[in-house]
Design a protein around this nucleic acid. Structure first.
Length: 576
RNA sequence: GCCCCCGUAGCUCAGUGGAUAGAGCAACGGAUUUCUAAUCCGUGGGUCGCAGGUUCGAUCCCUGCCGGGGGCGCCA
């Protein structure tokens, strides 16, 4: 069992390391010896490039090292043969029988062979984190979708994940909103679309505050009252939160996103004073221009304000308090924050201060590029926001249109359900298939692509596999897949088997690099391999034995596709 | 001024130390009496921003420059 939970690269790398050690002993450091998948089948399935690197240490030509290794390496059940090519590449050709046995072991494994190195380890993931009284627009989707994919990946790897939605429920904007609410509110609009109305009164109040000093002063006064626990303002604030959370919940449900914790920044309010005391006690904080500051020059960072000259606390203070709270409560191995690129400096500062305060927990900032529109920077002020719900509606509408033309016989309720999964899948995949760190230029056609390298392409591939399975039982009711053997009868199958065995290491590497796009890439290649296989190789019309084998292989591919798409939060309808 | 990202095919993007740099879209040509054509097969398309450097080997690492985006004391 344990053997099946080792990745192919681990298996081969361990073997190569042993072979190098047997030849050269202590003269070399073998820890860097690894193998990678080849880019070209002519060069084998995996390759080891260590001979070139060792040539310098050993003062021997790389070709000679490689030749010697190939001649003297002990046999391994996974390896059919080795070849030396070019300057000293060692090309590894996997043994068919071993491949087949490894893939056969995946039959019925809903985990796709992924091991659980995270057992007994805890990770806190802080993502999505929208602000109260503001609608979620397409700019919010990245943190939510990327964070949720990472969340799912770590869970599959066996980690205990605490997904925490760190809501922006505390800050200077509340004074402005309270004034807007008291003066400009339209009750009917609030009932129909609460967040839109709250945003409207916020914008109106904000504009007034910019032009009217007296108004601004009143806003600040309302904020101070709220912070002092004034019952009226507190009741309003609680109402804003309830309304916002209700709306967020609707969107999270559509997106299939669930949190373990939904704690606003306000949850940590009673720890802020203690945070400041600790900073002062450690001699890290100094007063400058009335504000309490932490100077980080020796760390090459600009100053960080932890308490404003008016006595209010900043984001950094709140985040510090949050770290202490999380460490106490969950004792995580690491805390991961998923936010946009603009917050890089903030996280560098607050991570540095955390370390100075003795926090040993690993803190990682996963940042992603901003979402922008083709013609303009994304901006609430310019009013060119696209509401997240609008995007999801449009995605489902387009998917429904497509399904209705391609599958007119399907019942409408079915088409709606499939359109929902496909539309949301398209939106998620469009984001997740891209390197998180690149700036996204939003276009409807790209975000909602239903063909080519898209979520629906993968879902379509899955649905066709499901169909093969059903057609098989229909046409061959006496067939016994359970008892059938998996065979390797052609290059397309071999290619698919090798790809299938790569899934566990792709998941591990993607989780480690915080890049769901690596999983997306992998799944797309797997689906492409399958689509080509499907189109060019007969399954149900193949002779008995081969037929069962191919249907079995389809089953394994389906399981990995399903598992992988689930990691991206994308559903897999059985019919499309 | 300083710091962080990005620059790859007409467009949108993968690839981040290995062999001949890949997809999708767009263009063009094929495939459906057949397991779902949202598919498949093929063709054309590149000084990997520019210039140096490190290396057996650089799109990938280092330095400089050009172009774009973001950030830099009381927002979060």
């Amino acid at each position: 069992m344990q053997k099946q939970l080792t990745t192919v690269t681990d298996t081969l790398a361990t073997w190569m390391q042993a072979a190098f050690t047997a030849l050269y002993g202590e003269a070399i450091d073998v820890s860097g010896v690894g193998v990678v998948a080849t880019g070209n089948a002519a060069f084998g399935d995996y390759q080891c490039n260590a001979a070139m690197g060792l040539a310098k240490v050993l003062k021997v030509a790389p070709r000679v090292i490689a030749d010697r290794l190939v001649a003297e390496a002990p046999p391994h059940e996974a390896v059919a043969r080795l070849e030396v090519a070019g300057p000293g590449f060692i090309n590894i050709f996997l043994a068919d029988a071993w491949l087949v046995s490894r893939v056969a072991a995946l039959r019925g494994d809903p985990r796709g062979g992924v091991p659980q190195p995270g057992q007994g380890r805890t990770v806190v993931m802080d993502y999505s984190s929208p602000n109260i009284a503001k609608p979620m627009h397409i700019g919010h989707i990245r943190s939510t979708i990327i964070g949720n994919a990472l969340d799912r990946m770590y869970r599959l790897l066996g980690y205990r994940v605490i997904a925490d939605n760190h809501i922006g429920d505390w800050g200077t904007q509340f004074g402005i909103i309270i004034m807007g609410y008291r003066n400009f509110l339209d009750r009917t609009a609030l009932e129909q679309s609460p967040i839109e109305e709250l945003e409207r009164v916020y914008v109106k109040s904000y504009e007034r505050a910019k032009a009217d000093e007296g108004w601004m002063t009143q806003c600040r006064r309302e904020l101070v009252k709220l912070q002092a626990g004034d019952p009226e303002n507190t009741a309003l604030w609680k109402q804003f939160i309830a309304l916002s959370l209700g709306e967020f919940a609707r969107i999270y449900k559509r997106l299939g996103v669930a949190f373990d914790l939904v704690r606003g920044e306000s949850f940590y309010n009673d720890r802020l004073a203690a945070m400041i005391a600790l900073l002062e006690e450690k001699g890290l904080a100094t007063i400058s221009e009335g504000a309490l500051c932490v100077f980080l020059e020796e760390d090459g960072l600009p100053v960080c304000i932890v308490r404003k000259s008016d006595g209010g606390y900043n984001y950094a203070t709140s985040d510090l308090a949050t770290v202490f709270s999380r460490v106490e409560e969950f004792a995580p191995e690491k805390i991961v924050y998923v936010t946009d690129e603009r917050q890089q400096l903030h996280f560098k500062q607050f991570f540095t201060i955390s370390r100075k305060l003795g926090v040993e927990t690993r803190l990682d900032h996963v940042w992603f590029g901003l979402m922008r529109l083709p013609d303009a920077t994304f901006s609430t002020r310019q009013g060119n926001v696209i509401k997240l719900e609008h995007l999801l509606d449009e995605a489902e509408r387009r998917a429904f249109e497509l399904i209705s033309t391609s599958s007119p016989d399907m019942k409408e309720a079915c088409r709606r359900e499939v359109a929902r999964a496909v539309g949301i899948g398209a939106v998620k995949y469009a984001d997740l298939s891209q390197n998180p760190q690149t700036t996204v230029t939003f276009t409807w056609d790209k975000a909602l692509a239903l063909d080519g390298n898209s979520g629906p392409y993968l879902q379509y591939a899955y649905a066709r596999i499901a169909s093969v399975r059903d057609k098989y039982s229909e046409r061959f009711p006496d067939g016994d897949l359970e008892a059938a053997d998996l065979l390797l009868t052609g290059p397309a199958e071999r290619d698919l088997m090798i790809r299938l065995l790569r899934f566990p290491e792709v998941v591990m590497r993607a989780a480690d690099a915080y890049k769901p796009s690596m999983v997306a890439d992998y799944l797309y290649e797997l689906a492409q391999g399958y689509s080509s296989f499907y189109q060019n190789v007969p399954f149900l019309k193949a002779e008995t034995g081969i037929r069962e084998s191919r249907v079995l292989l389809c089953g394994v591919i389906a399981a990995v596709l399903r598992r992988g798409l689930d990691l991206l939060g994308i559903e897999t309808p059985e019919r499309i």
